[in-house]
Simulated assay, not measured.
Amino acid sequence: MFELRPRGGGPAPVAVFSLGRQVLPRTAVEEDPDLLHAARAWLAARGSRELRAVDETGSSICAERFTLSDLGSSATQAVRKVITLAPSNAELVASLGCFERVIACEDSSDSPPETAKCERLGPDLGPDLDRVAELRPDLVFSSLSVPGMERIVTGLRARGVPQRVLAPRSITDVIAEVRLAGADLGVPDRAEEVVAAMEAEAAALRQARPPRAAKVYLEWWPRPMFTPGAACFTNNLIELAGGINVFADRPGASVEITPAELVAADPDICFVSWCGVALEKLDPDNLIRRPGLEALRAARAGRVIRLDERYSGRPGPHMLEAARIMARAIASL
């Protein structure tokens, strides 16, 4: 539920969003069509690409499929000044050999090493968008890979800042976004080299998979428990590693589950890959000792593995390293 605060003040009408339906006051949409853009961004951050906006009576306002290109805006000149607003986007620009154009990034970007010299704009879910506008970038690479980032995309739009919005749901999407970024930056040939390397790595992983897929649980966060759902690129990584996500049937990109649901899913192996947590601070024993998971066979057998979130949680050229790490663990079962 969201309060829609009018720019000129006055009573704030309410909007209610879910993946299946978005309820908006018709009058508010007529007065501010950007509300539909905000609804699309909210949906994209949760893995959906289908808008079903209705008014208070349930009558349709807009029903359509949309693309991420609908959410961004093109650069108006050659792209020489770039801002990245997600660690995966910084790595993408670097893979294209263009990081020298990056003038600022959000706080959690740590690769390539040159990020240390960039101006920092604040946390990934709350960068200083006024400062972004002041820097007058030719293009911002924004993201909708995490719920909450829709506020950034809509905030950039409100400030008239050109942006390429990235939110891949599969390796195929990542490859398409590499090509889009290559076109934006004027380096399409380099983009094709990155794509070719990723495709070759994926093919090698696919060929090495065991004949029987292992049931895999990957944990984004321990309390409450979050895991990838149907609309997450991580499913592809698990498949390339020789596994299948036990919650791949759940709608959305990231879904909350209960200990009882995990026990019922009965994975063969579990990976802890908590968002924003360094590899050395990941604690497999947290899952093994967690109340409610006493009957989880994988935990009892010690089949809980650390997985660096810099690979599993950053959709880009380095993501296949997560598949390699999982493949080694699955091969040892």
Rank of each mutant, 00 (worst) to 15 (best):
F226Y: 10
S111H: 11
A45C: 09
R46V: 08
M1C: 12
A78F: 06
R80G: 13
V194Q: 04
K81D: 08
A181K: 02
R101T: 08
F2H: 15
L125P: 03
G155S: 08
P222N: 11
E30W: 07
A86K: 06
V140D: 05
A204S: 14
A197G: 10
L144G: 06
A265S: 11
L156D: 06
R157P: 07
P317R: 04
G182F: 01
V178H: 00
P222W: 08
A331F: 00
K215D: 12
I175Q: 03
R190L: 07
A196T: 11
R49Q: 14
L293E: 11
P228G: 10
F271K: 04
P137W: 10
L71G: 09
E100Q: 11
I257N: 04
C275R: 10
I305F: 11
A327L: 02
V174E: 01
L121T: 06
D110S: 11
P228S: 09
C270P: 03
S69W: 14
L71V: 11
E239F: 00
L279Q: 12
E256R: 11
A44W: 01
L24S: 02
T172M: 00
A265P: 02
A295G: 13
F17N: 09
I257G: 09
A329V: 10
A253T: 04
M326D: 07
Q77H: 10
P25V: 09
S111V: 15
A260G: 07
E239L: 06
P315I: 04
E294A: 15
D128Q: 07
R212T: 15
V23P: 00
V304C: 03
H37L: 13
G160H: 07
L129D: 06
P113N: 07
R157G: 13
V195C: 09
T172S: 09
S312H: 01
G243Q: 02
T67A: 13
L92A: 04
R40D: 12
E261L: 05
E91T: 05
E199I: 05
A248S: 13
L71R: 08
M149S: 05
D128I: 08
